[in-house]
Design a binder for these strands. Structure first.
Lengths: 350, 350
DNA sequence: CTGAAAGCGCTTACAG
DNA sequence: CTGAAAGCGCTTACAG
């Protein structure tokens, strides 16, 4: 950080006090048109810009927001970050990005760098607000230390978290919708005549997985279809998980005829496994991705998938945070009702 | 930003001056063991942490780095961001992420928010250093206003840019390697007996595209193979671009027998198009992705691709920036020699 | 080893 | 409408 023009120089050159310069810059307080013009000229000449550190010290704000995510490689999170950064920038805020590398398994094995540490760090940074997406908040069982750290954070600054609502913590919790899409997808597959519908991907102990699983079972029962535990294969959210899950579902004594994939990664891995068994999608196995990551029209086969409107979620979250910071009215919650986009992979009626 | 415990409280409670508290916290200057212990105790009790704004004002550093990218949705950039954030965090720096939405076409049509504006913003934020990846720097023709803005930025703080070297600008430029991989890929396809090798994807006027194109033509000529302009179809880097490019290459009077795809998106789109022509990869068309985004082993067909070691690049870039900031020796340049990972899509000898 | 004081660059009552 | 002065929370010569 090099030495820059300061308000003192500008004041001197303009022949006024720093107070006046400050006034014309902030637009607060009365300034005569002439003085104003003169100061503005000098400001322009030097390309002067107030030091945000000094401003922040007085104003108690940094015009900086923290965003904490477990992973940036996952399209869900990168979409979130993209939209949020853009909206924040338009509102003249910057985003400090924190990537915790949290995974349910690393957590169990006692990951070294914890999300709690990041909470503290972001608190120390004196940001004006924080968005937390995913991580431990998605666990069915949230640790006490996490709750304590989140509470401490939320008591100090506005925070909105995307994930389950934790009681007695002064955050805004924005809940994602996990059930409706599952109901739509299972019913659709059933309407096509499938009786053995597999569930592939997701991590046990994670809310999104468990609640989808529960819905899946409930709808299956309602419909009088098979609900063997064998029909379910969960491990994680990535390509190999889809591959292994599909493999398992195909090797059953009574194999599945349809698979619900947690997301596009799982679906792509599953397609690979299905091909390795010399079977095809959708002729032998129907497939639906429950979380669209890309335009399924360009995959082979064209992937039937659930659009969950991550952009709307992202926009809502940043607007909500901004409203908390500025003390304005909270925005209307967005329509997050998922859309089933029927393409080829789900096939036709059996 | 709420009111916090300050150094004054800590000093009072410890019965020493703020200077002493500052000394024990920073470890600079001599402090008697007893005083030190007492102060540390109080610090711990209050969970005190110096206000970084106040510190930054004096120390002229913010322990914050800027990272400017055009797009976070592209796996290349999200990988870069992931690695860089992690390394920065380990070195106790935070990352302010700036996403400019730059594309070559938006640029031509005169995009409203420019990268230059972001340069100014990040300068105003008083970050300690900046990493710039992609954007206008990847254009064959860089505008004067961009150069001027970059020069201004680089004169103020350390900046490393991933992209072509611009003369007379005091940045560290880290160049990516575009030719070698192309040579390997073209030669491999030729060795398999292909004579009509298409080139799909990429944006005209962008360095990575143009230099690969040049290499592609040079190798083809060297080998005495067809170099019709018709064999090339460029537009952009995403799924639809791969789809359209492959379509065009298949509709030629003398269609291609092999396609070089700029990256996995292009390859996936191309596979979709090839299937729509009732052709298959690799039986009818051989395919290589020149920029691996995911594990090609899980795609159908398994995708032969070039691994370009983005992680190594990312690590080098952040280390380089840190060395500039700290005035230490620059790290050794990484081995960015691309590896051709031969899987199914490139097929066997004709 | 320790403290009083100046100062980083700004903003905002408070006078005038 | 404008300026002198205090103060945001910290660090660092400078004395002692």
């Amino acid at each position: 950080m090099s030495r820059n023009v300061t308000i003192v120089e500008i004041a001197k050159e303009s022949g006024v006090s720093t107070a006046t310069v400050s006034r014309v810059l902030s637009g607060s307080g009365p300034v005569s048109p002439k003085t104003k013009a003169r100061v503005e000229e000098v400001v322009r000449k030097y390309g002067y810009c107030p030091n945000p550190l000094a401003q922040g010290l007085i104003l108690r704000q940094s015009r900086t927001l923290g965003m904490i995510i477990p992973n940036i490689t996952n399209p869900y999170f990168s979409t979130l970050v993209g939209i949020i950064e853009r909206a924040a920038h338009e509102a003249h805020y910057s985003i400090i990005l924190c990537i915790t590398s949290f995974t349910a398994t690393s957590h169990k094995s006692g990951g070294q760098e914890t999300e709690e540490d990041y909470f503290q760090m972001i608190l120390d940074k004196k940001v004006d607000g924080v968005i937390i997406a995913g991580g431990q908040i998605d666990l069915c069982e949230v640790s006490d230390s996490y709750k304590a750290a989140l509470e401490k954070l939320a008591k100090a600054i506005p925070v909105v978290v995307i994930g389950q609502t934790l009681p007695d913590i002064p955050c805004c919790f924005v809940n994602k919708e996990h059930e409706k899409g599952m109901v739509i997808a299972v019913r659709y597959l059933a309407s096509l005549g499938h009786c053995r519908i597999g569930f592939a991907g997701g991590e046990p102990g994670i809310i999104i997985t468990e609640s989808r699983l529960q819905t899946y079972r409930a709808v299956l029962e309602q419909l009088g279809l098979d609900t063997d535990p064998d029909l379910v294969s969960v491990s994680d959210y990535y390509l190999p998980d889809g591959y292994n899950a599909a493999k398992k579902l195909l090797e059953l004594d009574r194999p599945v005829t349809a698979i619900l994939a947690m997301n596009d990664n799982i679906a792509i891995g599953a397609i690979r496994a299905i091909s390795d068994y010399f079977l095809s999608v959708p002729d032998d196995i129907a497939l639906i991705s429950c979380d669209q990551f890309m335009d399924g029209n360009f995959l082979t086969p064209r992937l039937t998938s659930l659009e969950r409107h991550t952009e709307r979620l992202a926009l809502h979250v940043i607007r909500l945070l901004l409203s908390m910071i500025q003390g304005t009215q909270a925005p209307e919650p967005p329509d997050l009702y998922p859309d089933l986009i029927i393409r080829e992979s789900s096939g036709k009626h059996l």
